[in-house]
Nucleic acid binder design. Structure first.
Lengths: 232, 232
DNA sequence: AAAGGGGAAGGACATATGTCCCGGCAATGG
DNA sequence: CCATTGCCGGGACATATGTCCTTCCCCTTT
């Protein structure tokens, strides 16, 4: 993570997403712009939550780790989205880990200033409400999707999510074996079973396997299989 | 549903849950107290959402119906809880069906008055935020639970939820065959498989099967099996 | 170059869950 | 009282997924 000290850029993001009116004047000086590299963690489960972030560019994945050490994917998010909102409202430690899957830009503000200047600000509260409510709605769908569809569909959906960012440009299309292990954990299945499904995808010409990992070949085919993408 | 025209009772509920300060004076005259019978629907998926309800007594179950006609349980709720909050914030039709599983008392207020008198009220907005955020948190856990545990555990959990109300008093302990069919849909499995699991429960002495349906025999045993109850 | 180590893919088997269907029992109507 | 209908429990089989373990390949070390 590194801070981008560019006031003009920060303002232009706020104008682009029409969020400049959400932060009252006293809050403005405490807004900062941050850049995260691909693979970097924005926040980690269990750690104290200090900042509220507004995702304005790039894509992140949100996942949780169970007591037994299994990880489970919760969602992928693209702008406009909030990170750390639940923790801010509940006053708890970070609930889920958030990782950048493409280069990510965020507006960050320390909870201290929000408590001081925004906790009575109805425009800001309404914005929080809207975002959290939408998140809740998405999670409801995700729950349904996960219980109703087999690993095959979830994997297709996962591959689409990590291969393309919010502008739909190809990120890599290439997934190393290491990241595949993650992927298995993330969609809630065993590595073994995932291999089975990958093999099936190879036979169907959807992806290709090489010494480096696997490569997405037929994006449209995957999309057809995934129907509706759960993870975003 | 029937309205209970008892101002004193309404006020005593509000005092008991310390929510009297949430509704500003203009809103007060528009609060009504409603009673729902066991089995009655509070709201139904797809219908326009008009009221925000505050659950102050009893227990409800929340479930969703997929395009293919499968129903899936989302949660059980006990006081203090809101019904219709997501719909109010998003301005959408009812997302999930909510049904009373015990006699239920709710405070209801039409969205029209909320929009008029409460949309800038930061105390009320903060309350909404808190409740919805908690809901979101619970749903995250539920998602994890559903993906990590087999039908056996979910069924035990379900039986506990529908057999006992919020004061933990026994509701019926008896589940008719008809309601079992629902149960299967609700926990996201086939009726056939549920029967298998019930048979297993019988062998283990957890429940008993008779001509009328099944009867919970060993509540503690079920609780042990369910670990942590997902549905509430 | 030979030997060893580590990780990844896939075989073999076990378990969980779904689908189809049949036989029995109870309610209903004649 | 008997025949019909419909629902329910459970058998048989199919499919999805998990677990364990062996084999193979690549890389490092000697």
């Amino acid at each position: 993570m590194k801070e981008i000290k560019n006031r003009e850029q920060l303002n232009s993001f706020m104008r682009a997403y029409k969020i400049d009116c959400l932060f009252n004047p006293q809050l403005m000086p405490h807004l900062k712009l941050y850049q995260f590299n691909r693979g970097e963690n924005i926040c980690s489960q269990g750690e104290p939550s200090e900042y509220l972030y507004v995702l304005v560019k790039g894509k992140v994945k949100v996942f949780t780790t169970s007591p037994e050490g299994k990880t489970l994917i919760l969602s992928f998010k693209t702008p406009l989205e909030l990170i750390g909102d639940i923790e801010y409202v509940r006053g708890t430690d970070t609930v889920n880990t958030v990782e950048a899957v493409s280069p990510v830009t965020m507006i960050g503000v320390h909870q201290r200033w929000l408590k001081k200047y925004a906790s009575e600000d109805s425009a800001f509260l309404q914005f929080l409400l809207k975002i959290i409510t939408d998140k809740f709605y998405v999670k409801s769908n995700s729950l349904r999707f996960n219980l109703l569809y087999p690993v095959e569909v979830r994997l297709a959906s996962y591959l689409l999510s990590v291969s393309f960012d919010e502008s739909n440009s190809l990120l890599t299309g290439q997934h190393s074996a290491g990241s595949l292990k993650d992927a298995a954990n993330l969609i809630g299945t065993s590595y073994r079973h995932m291999n089975r499904v990958i093999r099936q995808f190879c036979n169907e010409g959807l992806v290709d396997r090489n010494s480096k990992g696997i490569l997405v070949k037929d994006r449209e085919g995957l999309r057809r299989l995934a129907n509706d993408n759960i993870y975003e």
